[in-house]
């Protein structure tokens, strides 16, 4: 039994039913780290937010189920799972902390919400675990008194407070400088190991994903186009989109033309009855514009493509 299983998830705009995420299914095992990579508008964040029913206003789930330890996540058990068994860290640590509330209080609030009472020793231990110097002083400060990296540490402390089974990290280092990013990546890895937690890591940065996860899900225009282990995705990509992305990163000569993908990604709802990548693809076949390719499993890799690369090209 998988720790988390998302089946046939479809997300749409509430107002006019435009498809944003189209029939996405994936699973996460206990202790496994999974990454979702994609560009803005690919549906990676919406897929992650759907897990905990945190979709923003104006967007709703059309169909699909999310099962946690074999049990469907629904309104009745959501409060027992959210923040407790599954927690989240967001991109911008400034907007996810309350600017009017001291940090210690914000941590205690989480404990209180889960009926664990006011426990200042636990609060300080949480701050200490993410290596914040002088935890007492930190607990007594407001978010604006800290740098972005420190605030993100606080967010991670809150997310890991109740030792969740799954941590969903939505671009947690995108707003940070590289050296701070390095500290946060190391910290998350360390905490993951200490708690044997699973991680769902959402990012557009393939380099970060390659370091953080075991399995990569590549999303494009609202659909999953390829799934595989890090080694397979990076050394043996099959979908032309993945090949283009990775090619531009690793196959380049100084000041020479980089491998690029012409054009821009389409809006997911404009793609009907064809492959979303067909218009930008160099390997397009007549079939590609007539039907949607389904995700086909081949060994430990899956891809949705009628004319995949044979592999080993990069």
């Amino acid at each position: 039994m998988s720790l988390l299983r998302v089946s046939n998830l479809t997300v749409e705009t509430s107002l006019d039913g435009k498809t944003l995420v189209d029939d996405v299914s994936f699973s996460i095992e206990k202790g496994e780290s999974v990454g979702i990579v994609g560009e803005s508008g690919s549906g990676k964040s919406l897929s992650a937010l759907s897990i905990l029913s945190l979709l923003p206003n104006g967007v709703r789930k059309r169909s699909g189920t999310v099962e946690f330890q074999g049990q469907e996540i629904a309104a009745e058990n959501l409060q027992n799972i959210r923040g407790n068994r599954i927690s989240m860290v967001y991109q911008d640590p400034m907007t996810s902390l309350n600017p009017m509330m001291k940090i210690g209080r914000q941590i205690e609030e989480v404990l209180e919400a889960h009926d664990l009472g006011k426990d200042s020793a636990r609060t300080l231990a949480a701050l200490e675990s993410v290596r914040i110097p002088e935890p007492e002083k930190c607990a007594n400060s407001y978010p604006h008194e800290f740098s972005g990296g420190m605030r993100q540490r606080v967010m991670i402390a809150i997310a890991l407070l109740l030792k969740p089974d799954l941590l969903i990290a939505d671009e947690p280092t995108t707003a940070l400088d590289v050296t701070i990013q390095r500290q946060i990546l190391n910290l998350v890895n360390e905490q993951k190991r200490a708690n044997n937690a699973s991680i769902l890591w959402i990012s557009h940065d393939l380099g970060v994903v390659a370091e953080m996860v075991d399995k990569v899900i590549v999303m494009y225009a609202g659909r999953i186009v390829e799934v595989g282990t890090v080694a397979e995705i990076f050394e043996n990509p099959r979908h032309p989109y993945t090949v283009g992305l990775i090619g531009s990163l690793i196959k380049r000569k100084h000041q020479q033309k980089m491998i690029s993908i012409p054009g821009t990604p389409p809006k997911p709802w404009t793609v009907t009855g064809q492959c979303g990548f067909a218009d930008r693809c160099s390997r397009v076949l007549p079939n590609c514009t007539q039907q949607k390719p389904e995700l086909v499993e081949l060994g430990r890799q899956s891809f949705a493509c009628f004319n995949p690369f044979e592999g080993g090209l990069i």
Binding site: D205, S248, K257, M258, S260, P262, T264, P265
Partner: peptide
Amino acid sequence: LDVSVRADIINLLL
């Protein structure tokens, strides 16, 4: 810019 568009702009600039 989106990751898949970056290489295109870099090529153009060069």
